[in-house]
């Protein structure tokens, strides 16, 4: 565990050193500004419009950022050759990958903290009502979504180059987003095998449990637990697949 934490710390420090949090804070503040503007102009409930827009922007932009960081932490170490030094230490590749993943999660957690703070401050500053429990659940769901998209990127980077990994990660994520509307829209005469596959994909990979309900709608404790379990299962699956690829693949920096 000590080794994994060392790699995680190294990963977090590398991301932090690249000054990732400063531009991020500006983007988040801009997103909050847009949401406030839209809320003031909308005919719907101000708080609902503000929070729903913020969630949407954070989920989408955060997912992209997490994928970019996920690809970066693997490809940078391959490109600068520091992976050779890492691999000269007495730790298996699976632990190295776990450390990288944990480092990414720490960075994403920091991003979630900054996001949550600006999100909440925006609401307070512009006198927008916030349901604290809903806010906490939505932030947790968003953070878990980022973890998952980040882990997809790490998985892809474990066996492909940075460009391909990023493109494939975004494609996989979008495929998941599209699977639910496609599955529900399939007509009865559709090929049963294709229908079954789309429904299964929608069930497993639409990431719908990680999309927060509208502001004020609180999901039950059981649903929260199921969401956490779902996220954990997906994260584990991507980690183990990534570890398997990393184990068998030659590392040529």
């Amino acid at each position: 565990m000590k080794q994994v934490l060392a790699i995680a710390q190294e990963t977090f420090l590398s991301l932090k050193r690249d000054k990732i949090f400063q531009p991020l804070s500006i983007i988040i503040a801009a997103a909050v500004g847009v949401a406030v503007f839209a809320a003031d102009w909308s005919l719907e409930s101000r708080s609902q419009v503000y929070h729903d827009i913020v969630v949407f922007i954070f989920q989408v932009s955060g997912a992209f950022i997490s994928m970019i960081w996920g690809v970066k932490i693997i490809s940078d170490s391959k490109q600068d050759g520091s992976i050779e030094l890492s691999m000269s230490r007495p730790l298996p590749r699976s632990q190295w990958l776990l450390g990288r993943m944990l480092g990414l999660f720490i960075s994403l957690f920091a991003m979630a903290a900054i996001t949550g703070l600006i999100w909440r401050l925006g609401a307070v500053a512009f006198d927008i009502e916030t349901n604290t429990l809903w806010f906490s659940i939505a932030l947790a769901q968003t953070t878990l979504l980022w973890f998952i998209t980040g882990s997809v990127a790490i998985f892809m980077s474990s066996f492909t180059g940075p460009g391909t990994a990023l493109f494939a990660s975004i494609s996989i994520w979008i495929l998941g987003l599209l699977s639910r509307p496609i599955a529900t829209g399939l007509i009865g005469s559709a090929n049963p095998a294709a229908k079954q596959f789309t429904e299964l994909l929608a069930k497993l990979w639409s990431l719908s449990p990680l999309i927060p309900e509208s502001h004020g709608t609180i999901i039950s404790v059981l649903e929260r637990q199921q969401t956490a379990l779902y996220a954990f299962a997906i994260l584990s699956a991507f980690y183990f697949m990534g570890a398997a690829f990393a184990h068998f693949k030659d590392i040529n920096s």
Binding site: L13, D18, D80, G81, S82, E84, L85, S88, S253
Partner: peptide
């Protein structure tokens, strides 16, 4: 390692 194959940041 050879030159510069270190964690640069």
């Amino acid at each position: 390692p050879e030159t510069n194959r270190l964690p640069q940041s």
